[in-house]
Amino acid sequence: MGPKKRVSIRINGVNYLHEVEPRLLLIHYLRDVVGLTGSHIGCETSVCGACTVMLDGAAVKSCTVLAVQADGAEVLTIEGLAQGEDLHPLQEGFWECHGLQCGYCTPGMILSAYQLLLRRPDPTEEEIRRAVDGNLCRCTGYQHIVDAVQYAARKMKK
């Protein structure tokens, strides 16, 4: 086992300092060390996107990032998206448009959509579908997810 490394990561606006094994994956760090279990794990091959979080402003699959790679970085997880009781427009959209069923893929899906709206505030349906190609949903058939992202885009434009 390699020596533990010290990592300092700001997550949802809070600073965390831990000693971790270099091999610790960011998703396990978030879930098992910090206790933020909103991001999920749905595969081990970087396909499903259930573990998606924002790392320094970019959506990443946190199962394919080492915690040591996030040292000094800023992370946003699903738990940090709402401002107190005020839901983010994307969260609202997913709720209003029934964009989730079992909910397992939802945190990752919402953060990929969040990435999209940062880059393209007024996306077409095709752009939305392409933007969540790295996130599998087995329940919804994606149609209500597209509706949810459109809802959020409209709301954020106002």
Partner: peptide, 21 residues
């Protein structure tokens, strides 16, 4: 009617088995 289970799920506050410690 929009779903009543969603508020916890869209905030990442639901508890699937691996979320129970």
């Amino acid at each position: 009617i929009k779903r009543r289970e969603d508020p916890r799920l869209i905030r990442g506050l639901g508890h699937y088995v691996d979320d129970i410690n």
